[in-house]
Amino acid sequence: MNNREQQLKAFDRLLTIMDELRLECPWDKKQTIQTLRHLTIEETYELGDAILDNDLEEVKKELGDLLLHIFFYAKIGSETKDFDIADVANEICDKLIHRHPHIYGDVKVKDEEEVKKNWEKLKLKEGKTSVLEGVPKSLPAIVKANRIQDKVAGIGFDWEHPEQVWEKVQEELNELNEEIKTGNTDKIESEFGDVLFSMVNYARFIKVNPEDALERTNKKFIQRFQFLEEAAKKEGKQLSDMSLTEMDVHWENSKKFFK
C-alpha cells in the first residue's frame, strides 16, 4: 500500500494531467458541468455493478473514473472562479467535523442510531427546512423510498418492531387485492406503490438493502435465463418453439448453478 506522501503525489499527478487535458484535448476542452452529468451517473452505476460483483479490481478502476469526474468538475469550477479542488475538499472536511461532534466535540453517543439522529438534527440546524430536503429527486424509486424512510427514522418517525412493519405489508397487500377486484387502474397502481413502499420499509428493519436485493435477483434471473437459452441452443431449438414444460426442465437445472 502507498504511504501518505505517495498518495498526495498521485493526486498531484492527476491534477497535472487534468490541467493538460483541459488545455490540449479537443474533447476535454469542450466539456461542461452539464455535459459531464450523464457520464457521471453512468460511472456511478458501473461502480455499483462492480461492488455487487465484489470485483475489487474493477471497483478500483471505477473509483478512478469517478475521481476523474470530481477533478474535472473542480477544474471547470476553477476556470469560472467559483471553486477549485481545495474548496471541494475543505467543504467536505468542514461538514464532517461539524456533523461528528461525538468525535470533534464533547457530544456523547452510545451507538450508530444516535449518530444518525444527531446527523439529521444538525442538518436542520444548518438551515434545511425539511429532513427530506436532501433526497435527490432523480433517484430511482426504490432507492428514493429507502432514503426517505431512513431519513425520517433518523428523527424518530418510525415503527418500533419488525412485526409491526410486516403487519403493515399484509395490510397493504389486502388493500391492493381489494382494488384489483374493482378494476380501477389508478387505484391499483396507487396501492401497488404502497405495497412496494411498505416492503422497502420492512427490508430496512431486517437489515436488507432493497436495491441490492432486487439487483441480485435481476442478475440471478439473467444468468438462469441465459443458461436456458444456451440449453435450448444445444438441443437445436428456439425457446419460442419449446413448451413451458420443456423450458421449466432447463430452468430447474439452472438453479444448481445460479443461486
Rank of each mutant, 00 (worst) to 15 (best):
V143F: 06
I97K: 13
E114C: 06
I142E: 02
I85P: 03
K123C: 08
E112L: 14
Q149T: 05
A153T: 10
C93S: 13
W159S: 14
I155H: 03
V109D: 01
L132C: 05
Y73S: 06
T129P: 00
S138D: 15
G105Y: 00
Y104K: 06
K121Y: 11
K110T: 12
K144H: 05
G77P: 02
V143E: 15
I142G: 01
L122P: 00
K81P: 00
Y104D: 06
V135N: 04
P101L: 04
K128R: 15
S130D: 12
K81E: 15
A89T: 08
V107Y: 07
K108T: 13
N146T: 08
V143D: 14
C93A: 13
Y73M: 11
F83C: 03
P136I: 03
A145V: 00
D87I: 04
F157Y: 14
N90E: 15
P136F: 04
W119C: 08
K75N: 12
G77K: 03
K151L: 15
I103L: 12
N90Y: 10
T80W: 05
I155L: 06
K121C: 07
H100M: 11
G134H: 04
D150V: 04
A89D: 07
A74R: 00
R99A: 06
P101S: 07
V107W: 04
I155C: 04
K125G: 03
N90C: 09
L139A: 05
N90R: 11
Y104N: 12
A74C: 09
K137L: 11
I142Q: 03
K75Q: 13
F83S: 01
D82F: 08
H98R: 14
H161I: 11
K121M: 13
G127N: 02
P140V: 06
R99H: 15
E126I: 02
K81C: 06
G154D: 04
Y73K: 09
A86F: 09
G154W: 02
G105H: 00
K137V: 08
E91G: 06
E114P: 01
H98N: 13
L96Q: 10
E114I: 06
E126P: 01
G77Y: 01
G105W: 01
L124D: 03
V109C: 02
Q149D: 09
E160C: 07
L124R: 05
F83W: 08
K75F: 05
V109Y: 01
E113N: 11
K121P: 00
K125R: 11
V143W: 04
V115P: 00
